[in-house]
Each structure stands twice: as structure tokens, then as C-alpha cells.
Design a protein around this nucleic acid. Sequence first.
DNA 1: TCTGGGGTCCTAGGACCC
DNA 2: TCTGGGGTCCTAGGACCC
Length: 424
Amino acid sequence: MLALIDCNSFYCSCERLFRPSLEGRPVVVLSNNDGCVIARSDEAKALGIAMGAPYFQCRDLIREKNVAVFSSNYALYGDLSMRVMDSLRQLMGAGNVEVYSVDEAFVSLQNLPENELENLAINIRQTVETWTGIKVSIGIAKTKVLCKVANRLAKKNKEKSGCIYILNTNAETREALSQTEVGEIWGIGYRYAEKMRQLGIESALTLSQMPLEWARKNMGGVVGQRLIRELNGDPCLTMKDPLEKKQMIGTSRMFGKPVYALQDVREAVATYTARAAEKLRRQQSAAAFLEVYLVTAADNRFTYHPKRHSLSVRLPKPSALTNELISYAMPLVETLFRDGPKYLKAGILLGGLVPEETIQGNLFAKDPKAQLKQLMLAVDNINFSQGNEMVKYAASGLERSWKMRQELISPRYTTRWKELFEVR
DNA sequence: TCTGGGGTCCTAGGACCC
DNA sequence: TCTGGGGTCCTAGGACCC
């Protein structure tokens, strides 16, 4: 059996942790640039504020209902996420925990007798809440997809379930699937849900009874087949090795306001390259492939149809050095950039990742880059301990008229001395 | 006026090679 | 009229996730 452990309204819970007065009051958290709503407390959901709703569209409702609004504070959420995951690792053994996202983890429950599952789940819930202050919901079943189904039901009726839902028998599984709409299944997005509805497939139970051959033709090949097998209790998605490294690393941002000048775009791309290079070094990889992309507004100003323009290079040798990566990125920016269009966003992708130690050096010559590697290490250490971008590259600019907006951000209570929670 | 950021996996087609 | 088969690498794009 597997368990999916998922924090309840995670970002909102983080904000509430340090402002108990928000308990019972609706809370929402906005995306970067304060663009749209990406987290809602139960009270905010009840008001009908949709996930992903543009902020400007629900601003009136938010004001009227006295909803507390926050810009996203990733330093805070990241730190609390780490505490929750560490708690799970302590309880269940590090090798049994797969962190799936900032607020979710799969836990393997091999060889546990069925009648102990519920007590275990209760214990996990209570311990995590005591240690971190964060409430979680737990779904237990035979496969990852079924765990997701169970977890959803646990959250749907918290009073009744106690935030725990277990699918032990086939009858329980059938019942759960019949209560789940196709669009709510993990792996069925907007497009497929639409397609299913047209075909008259409405519940997860109906979908689970479709033939595999049909899934291959209509649901993206092997992906769809796996999904149907998972719904039937046949595990196809295995637990991932916690030590696995990312295969691609990217950094991108919308600009705080539209940008028209080459210099601004250059600065932004240099900044993002430095960020991506940091992530690269954190997992001890080097990149052999680099892509820069710029997003412009559509010509038609009545619709929101941004256009993506990209260029890429293959590096002669994989690198994890910020200055080197910037020097490959800048010519791409210059080639891509045109005078005239309104630029909304820029980003960089690093791919072809290889472990840093496999990069071939010359055995006999002194590595000319050894000093640069030392420098990177020092820069990363300073930025980690003193705050992001304490040390930065000149190419990434000082003025930064393009920087994103975060007008409603809360203090970084747990990761900055200056912003610690104060008790008077 | 105002619509996030970071990923994953898969497929298809073209270039090139033997 | 006829025109191999199979492999790799790369790019582009679609679909999905939180």
C-alpha cells in the first residue's frame, strides 16, 4: 500500500501559522506579480474564488468579504515544506518518502497489516501537526492514482473523514471511483476531461472499465493505458528514488511591467541564468544545452495570446559556471530581440544535464577553471546565508525596472533574522 | 490597466548515419 | 512503375501536474 500525504491549503496555512487572528477568516495567496490566486483557504473556496482566478477579477469580492490577501512568500513556504517533509522522513524512514511537490509526498507502506493503516495515518497527522503546525490529509490505496482519489475524498468531507481516507477493499475502491468525476482524476486535465464528457464517460469508475486499446488511441498512448491500470489497482507509477536529479532546470518570470528595451531583457536573462546556474550547482550537475526564450504580447490587443520565441545552443563542454552560461545566453538574447514588440516575460532552460564530476578535464594541465569553481562556491554560500543576490553579476543590472511586483508579501518569519516573529 | 513558475513524460517528424 | 531498414539525435509541440 501507498499513502499520499498532502498539506491542507498549504500556502494559506503557512500564512496563518504566524497570524492566528486569521483563523476562520478567508485567506488567499497570489502568484508572482500578484497576478492570480494560487491558494485558497476553505473559507475562500466557499466564497467561490476559483483556483487560478485573475486577481483583478475577484478584487471586489475579496474586499467585500474581508478576505486576507498575500503575495507568495516562497522563502517561508519552502522552509515550512522542508519541516513537514523532514517530519515524514523521521516517522517513516527517509527511503520510504518521495517528495512529490512543495506540499505533497508519497509514502510507501510495505508489509503493513491492513488493520494498522488507520492508526498509522492518525499518528502521522497528529505528529506532523504538533511538530510543524501544519495540518495534512492522507489518502491510502494500492496505487498512486488511487491514493490521489482517496486523498481528494478525505479533503472533501473533513469532518466525516477526519482527513483520512483508506481504500482497502475492491468495494471501497469502486465506491470511491463512482464518486469521482473524470476531470478530477490525477492525469486528466482540461482537454481530456472535455473529450471524455463528449464520449459520455463521466465517472472515474466508467473510465476504469474502458479497454486499454481504447486508452492507447484516445488518451496519449502509454500514458492513458497506465492511468487506467492504476485505477484498477495495478501499480504502474513506481516510487521515485529521492536522490534522482532533475533533467532540466529553468528560471523564468513575467516582467513587473512590459519591457521594450534590449538592455532590460539582457539584464533579466542574465539574472535568471544566474538563478538557474545556482540550482544546477545545488544538485551538482552541469548543463550541455541552453535555451533562451522571450515572450511577447500578441498583435491583437483584445485577446491574451502571448507568443514564445526561443533559440538554443549546445555547449562545447557542459558547464555549471555562471559567467560561462551568461556568455552563451547573451548572444541568443541579441539575436532574438527585435525593436518594437512588447516583451512580457523571459526565461532560460538548462538541459543535457550531466553529473559535475563526469566532466572530462585534462589530467596533466592545471584546471584553469578551478578558481572559477571556487568562486562559484563562495558566491553560493554568501547568497544562501545572507539572502539571495547579496552577490550578483554586473550583467544582471542594478536598476531593474523589469522586476516583478510583490506588494502584499508577509515577512520571511523563519529564514531571515530581521524578519523573525516578534512577541511583545 | 491587470492572467505564475517550475517541472514531467510522450509523440512525431526531419536530418543524418550505416 | 519502381525507391530498405533501422538506429540516433534534435526540435517542436501537446498534455499533464502542483
